[in-house]
Simulated scan of single mutants.
Amino acid sequence: MEANHATETSTLLLIDDDPNLVLLVKDYLELRGYIVITAKNGRDALKVLEKDIPKLIICDVMMPEMDGYAFVKKVRENPQTNWLPILFLSAKGQIQDRVAGLSKGADVYMVKPFEPDELVAQIEASLNQASRMRQMQGPNVGSAVSVHVPFDVELTPTEQRVIQMVAKGMANREIAESLSVSQRTVESHVSNMLGKTGLHNRTELARWAIEQRMI
């Protein structure tokens, strides 16, 4: 499977000033087959990028010396790194925080605390999307691009509620509990929306929902 291939070959850069979170996430991802490099803030992470280019960056937002926003700006300005998928982890979960994170260059915005399996799913989806983009457009493609969806897409009222929750970073299990339906029903709605929009994953659905001000 493509996702398994990604975990066998992918080096990730994890940036966070919380040593306990770094230890837990690093151990979990390494058990899933990833190679994980760590840094405690954006400034240290830039030094890492001078020597090693990972396949994806996982970054906290609020950090000393250089926060996530300043770090991502540097990454996007560098032609050697501007294509890298970036996943923000943050304790700040308001919609304005999510919008700020995505608009400043992150591809995914997840709120702490998060489900480890959801983190892995987002990583795999981002890696696969980046791989497809490089194959189609070359290796220097920036990953912080707007998604393109047909203008005449119509969502049912339930699909609109589901995509709003997806954009808020809720896992399928949480959405199912909120709507009092099965997780399989939520997965079906997500699959239907992917088919209607031509998008590839929940990350792209979330970005589209935010760009279209559905939330």
Results as ranks from 00 to 15, higher is better:
Met1Asn: 12
Met1Ala: 13
Ala3Thr: 13
Asn4Thr: 14
Asn4Gln: 15
Asn4Asp: 15
His5Thr: 14
Ala6His: 05
Ser10Leu: 01
Thr11Val: 14
Asp17Asn: 15
Leu21Val: 13
Leu24Tyr: 03
Leu24His: 04
Val25Thr: 10
Glu30Cys: 02
Leu31Lys: 15
Gly33Met: 04
Tyr34Gln: 06
Tyr34His: 11
Ile35Lys: 00
Ile37Met: 05
Ala39Gln: 07
Lys40Gln: 15
Gly42Phe: 10
Gly42Cys: 12
Arg43Asn: 06
Arg43Pro: 03
Arg43Lys: 12
Asp44Arg: 08
Asp44Glu: 13
Val48Gly: 04
Lys51Trp: 10
Lys55Ala: 14
Ile57Glu: 03
Met62Glu: 11
Val72Pro: 07
Val75Ile: 01
Glu77Asn: 12
Asn78Lys: 11
Trp83Ser: 07
Leu84Trp: 11
Ile86Val: 11
Ser90Asp: 06
Gly93Lys: 14
Val99Pro: 02
Ala100Met: 12
Leu102Gly: 00
Ser103Arg: 08
Ser103Pro: 03
Lys104Tyr: 11
Val108Gln: 10
Val108Trp: 07
Tyr109Val: 03
Pro113Leu: 09
Phe114Ile: 08
Pro116Glu: 09
Leu119Asn: 01
Val120Trp: 01
Ala121Phe: 03
Ser126Met: 08
Ser131Gln: 13
Ser131Thr: 14
Arg134Met: 13
Gly138Ile: 09
Gly142Met: 12
Val145Glu: 11
Phe151Asp: 14
Pro157Tyr: 02
Pro157Lys: 01
Glu159Asp: 09
Gln160Leu: 13
Arg161Lys: 09
Ile163Gly: 05
Gln164His: 02
Val166Ala: 02
Ala167Gln: 04
Gly169Tyr: 01
Arg173Asn: 12
Ile175Gly: 04
Val181His: 04
Ser188Trp: 06
His189Gly: 05
Val190Arg: 10
Leu194Ser: 10
Leu205Glu: 04
Arg207Gln: 05
Ala209Ile: 02
Gln212Trp: 07
Gln212Pro: 07
